[in-house]
Every structure is written in structure tokens, then in C-alpha cells.
Design a protein around this nucleic acid. Sequence first.
DNA 1: CATGGTTTCGAGGCTGTATCGAAAGTGAAC
DNA 2: GTTCACTTTCGATACAGCCTCGAAACCATG
Lengths: 200, 200
Amino acid sequence: MAAGDPIEEVLIAAGRLFGQLGVEATTMSKLAAEVGLGQSSLYYYFRNRDEVVAALVARANVVPLELIEGLVHGDGIVPLKLYRFVRGDVEALCGLPFDINEIHRIAGRQRDRFADYWQERALLDRRLTSLVRAGVRDGSLRDIDPRLASATILASDEGTQNWFRLRPQPARRVADAVARITIGGLVAPGIDIDEIASEA
Amino acid sequence: MAAGDPIEEVLIAAGRLFGQLGVEATTMSKLAAEVGLGQSSLYYYFRNRDEVVAALVARANVVPLELIEGLVHGDGIVPLKLYRFVRGDVEALCGLPFDINEIHRIAGRQRDRFADYWQERALLDRRLTSLVRAGVRDGSLRDIDPRLASATILASDEGTQNWFRLRPQPARRVADAVARITIGGLVAPGIDIDEIASEA
DNA sequence: CATGGTTTCGAGGCTGTATCGAAAGTGAAC
DNA sequence: GTTCACTTTCGATACAGCCTCGAAACCATG
């Protein structure tokens, strides 16, 4: 119905509907109606519903990736960088209109269609892993398996969005709590997580 | 096709198929075929597909609840109890044939149909919250919001199952890592998480 | 206004959900 | 052995949603 780029409008409406109804319950008819089109007209812009999902997830993915790239090249000790990453990631995830985990799951079942997603995800994982590894090396983090730690960090972030959507709260507060707990469990005994938290 | 209780058989097959294909892609035809029934025969045992989901989730829910009940009444300091809870919960979740988060999400969209689920979930949350609160009181945990901490613990546990299913590993190892990180971020500065980990 | 590219839609095939009523199976009572 | 009530199974069918296709409407440019 409105002006702008139809693709843009569809994606915005899709994000909202996915969040409200879930992906499964968001039919192409509802989505089309939302932007003032007939159901079959959507197929002019997207081959199918999954392509809408893919387009949406492609954008959501950019945020954490840019976040960590920026942090890696910035300065500060590793725990501080990690703290900022988790806080930023959680905050961004909680701001999404839809459930990232649901999209994540759909993507997981179709590795080929969502190849880009998985590549970026793998890159994010590598960046985070090597950041953790650096921390273990320089003694600012405990001696844990960096790959396991990285996976756990990402799991916490995404898992958090799960319940956040059910029980809304100030995103920043939640993000700080998750960051403090998660990174607090990683820092070496000598380092005080509260000091890092207040510095971040 | 086999002997036993048809309901039982359907649930077992459903767990497997939900895990392999996802809930959405598991059609009633496939499910029926799996147990040697016609598609419409399933509706004799279950009103619809969501009822299969509900039956499955009802069982999965029991495990963490029993786990924490047992721990609360046992002895040991709070961090030790929490460590054991997280490890047990993660291990149990990783052992499920299906993705608990997907079921979680479906349940979230239908509060009334899954009322039992939400009640048990709320109970679990209360138990965990009050355990954390006890730890904060007696000084074995840092001064954090117990509700936020409890939510974060559960989010980590469930979020972990997410990637665990994609990248299988020894469940115990993963469970230990998650417990060490999560609870490590909660314990008061004086307490050594490694000591707790080796005691658990 | 003719041409060609862009955008929209209605009709229809196909698959999956769920309902319904009929049929088949089962066992206890006579 | 037949009857009867109860349980279990299924085929037919309505209905909704996904997606395709071809035709029509739209629109810029010469």
C-alpha cells in the first residue's frame, strides 16, 4: 500500500508478523495483505517464503559480525572486549521484532539455501573463538577450550532472546546481566568482572 | 506396526521425526506411516498435531524439575547445587531426540493448550530463582538479581542444545563446560569454581 | 499511440490438516 | 454360534496454504 521499495516493505512486515505469529503461522496471504498486494504477487519478489526468511536473517547476521570486527581491532583487554560483545549482541537480538532462534532453526534444516547465513555464522564463530584463545594465552581468561566457550557465549546470547520476548524488560539491563554472568565465568581468578562491567 | 501402546509408539516416532525433519516438516502421514497406521487413524489418539507436541513436551519437562527438587533437598553449598543442576539439565537436553527450543516456541504461541507446560516451567523457574536467592543471601554467590540469573541459566541450557544438535560432541563434556562458565560467573569472588567442578 | 519491459493478479494443481461416518475387529453374555 | 456394545481403522472429503502459469494492467520511451 505505501510508497517505497516493495521488497523493503515486505521484509518489514514479515519481521513483524514472524514475531507476532511465528514463521509457520505467517501465511503468504497475510503477508501480502499487510503490504497491500495479492497473495500471488509476492512471488514476483520472492521465490518462496523461505527466501523472505533468508533475506531477513541476512540482515540480522550483520550486526554481531560488525560488532566483533570493531572490537577485535579496538583496544582493551580480552575480557572487556568479550563483555562488550555479549552486551551488544544480546541487546541487538532483543531488539529484533522476530525470534532469531526460529529463523536459525529453519536455516539449519536447509544448509544449501541458507549457505550465506552459515558462512557468516562460521566467521562469527571463528572470530569469537580466536578472541577467546587470545585471552587464554595472555592469561586474562581461564584455561578453557576456546571453541566450547565461544559456542556457549553464542548459545547464551540467543537463548536469552527466547525468554526476553516472553517477559519483556529493559534490554540493556538484561544484556548487562548476561554479559556479567557469561564473561564472569570465563575470566581468570585474579580479574574482577565487576570492574570490567563498570568500565564497559 | 509393532505391539505395545499405540500412543507410546507414536510419541517415540514423533520424537525421532521432529528431530530429523523438524516439527513443521513432520506430517501426520509420515508419522502415521512410521507406526504403520493410516493418516486419519492418528486422529483417534490425538486431536491434532500440536497434541502430539504437547504430550512430548510434558515428558521432557519432568527431568529438570525432578533434578532441582532433588538438589534443593540434598546438601552442599549453593554453587555446587547449581553446578549439578546445569550439568544435569544440559546433559538431559542434549540427549533428547528433538529440539526442545522448537517445541518451546510452539508452546509459547498457545498458552492455553500448553497450560501444563507453562505451569511446570514457572515452577522450575521459581525453584531455581529461590536457590539463587539463597546463595546470594549466604554470600556464596555474587550480588545479582536472582530472577535474571535464573532466566540466564535456563537460557544457556536451552541455547546450548541448539548448537549441540548441529555439532555433536560428548554431552558430558559440553555440560561441564556450560556449567563451569555459567556458574563460574555467579559465584562470589572468594570461591573457586574449579574446586566445585571437581567436587561435582 | 505503439512497443517492450515491469508489476499485478486470478485460476488451478498439489500437499497437508482435520472431520466424519462407515467398516472391521474384539470380546463378553447369552 | 450369534448378538451386541465397544474399540480401532480407514477412505472420502472439505478446506487452507504454497506455488506456478499465463493473461492482463501499468508505464516509460520513442
